[in-house]
Amino acid sequence: SAVVMEEGSPGEVPVLVEPPGLEDVEAALGMDRRTDAYSRSSSVSSQEEKSLHAEELVGRGIPIERVVSSEGGRPSVDLSFQPSQPLSKSSSSPELQTLQDILGDPGDKADVGRLSPEVKARSQSGTLDGESAAWSASGEDSRGQPEGPLPSSSPRSPSGLRPRGYTISDSAPSRRGKRVERDALKSRATASNAEKVPGINPSFVFLQLYHSPFFGDESNKPILLPNESQSFERSVQLLDQIPSYDTHKIAVLYVGEGQSNSELAILSNEHGSYRYTEFLTGLGRLIELKDCQPDKVYLGGLDVCGEDGQFTYCWHDDIMQAVFHIATLMPTKDVDKHRCDKKRHLGNDFVSIVYNDSGEDFKLGTIKGQFNFVHVIVTPLDYECNLVSLQCRKDMEGLVDTSVAKIVSDRNLPFVARQMALHANMASQVHHSRSNPTDIYPSKWIARLRHIKRLRQRICEEAAYSNPSLPLVHPPSHSKAPAQTPAEPTPGYEVGQRKRLISSVEDFTEFV
Rank of each mutant, 00 (worst) to 15 (best):
M426H: 03
Q419W: 05
L283D: 00
V495C: 14
H375T: 12
I407R: 03
I446N: 13
G347C: 15
W315Y: 11
H432V: 08
R285T: 15
I502V: 11
P226S: 12
D361F: 05
C460H: 09
H248P: 04
I377D: 03
W445P: 07
L283W: 01
I353N: 00
R454D: 15
C460M: 14
S389E: 15
T247M: 09
I367M: 13
A464W: 09
S231D: 15
L413Q: 00
T490V: 13
M420G: 01
S273R: 02
T312Y: 06
V252R: 00
A447V: 07
E278P: 01
A327C: 06
V354S: 01
L387M: 09
Q241A: 11
D217G: 07
Q484N: 12
N261V: 04
L280C: 09
Q237P: 06
S260N: 09
S466L: 11
D395Q: 14
A463M: 14
V408G: 00
F279P: 00
L225K: 08
D439I: 08
T490F: 12
T438F: 06
T312Q: 10
Q484R: 13
S403P: 07
T366G: 04
S219K: 13
L253R: 01
V351D: 00
M396G: 02
V354Q: 00
E397C: 08
G496R: 09
Q241I: 05
E384D: 08
E307P: 06
V416N: 01
K337C: 12
Q321P: 04
G272W: 03
D318W: 05
I502M: 14
G369Q: 06
Q484M: 11
Q230R: 11
E257Y: 13
Q321R: 13
L387G: 02
T281R: 15
S352L: 04
E461I: 09
R448H: 10
Q259C: 03
S428W: 04
L455T: 07
T402W: 04
H316W: 13
L238K: 15
L264P: 12
S433G: 06
E461S: 06
H478R: 09
I326T: 05
F350K: 04
M330F: 04
T485H: 11
T281Q: 14
A265G: 07
D336H: 12
G284Y: 04
Q230K: 11
E263R: 01
V304W: 08
G496Y: 05
L381D: 03
V416R: 00
I353A: 00
V400A: 04
Y313V: 13
V495R: 14
H248C: 15
S273F: 01
N227R: 09
S262L: 04
V378E: 00
I242V: 10
I459L: 12
K368Q: 15
I367D: 04
P486Q: 12
S273H: 02
Q310V: 10
G398M: 09
H338W: 08
V252P: 00
G492K: 08
Y355V: 01
K480P: 12
P331V: 05
D308P: 09
Q457E: 15
S219R: 09
G359Y: 05
S469I: 11
R456H: 12
D357K: 01
H325L: 07
P226T: 13
H271F: 15
H345L: 12
V252D: 00
D341R: 15
E233A: 11
H431W: 10
S389V: 09
H345K: 12
P226V: 15
Q321A: 14
D291F: 12
K337G: 15
T379W: 03
V473D: 15
R234F: 05
V304A: 10
N412E: 03
D336P: 08
L238I: 07
P468H: 07
S229G: 11
V255N: 01
C292Y: 14
H271N: 08
R393M: 13
K499A: 14
S231R: 10
N425F: 03
P294W: 06
R234L: 11
G301P: 14
R344M: 07
G256K: 04
H375W: 15
W445S: 11
Q293L: 10
H478E: 15
H432E: 09
I250F: 05
Y276E: 00
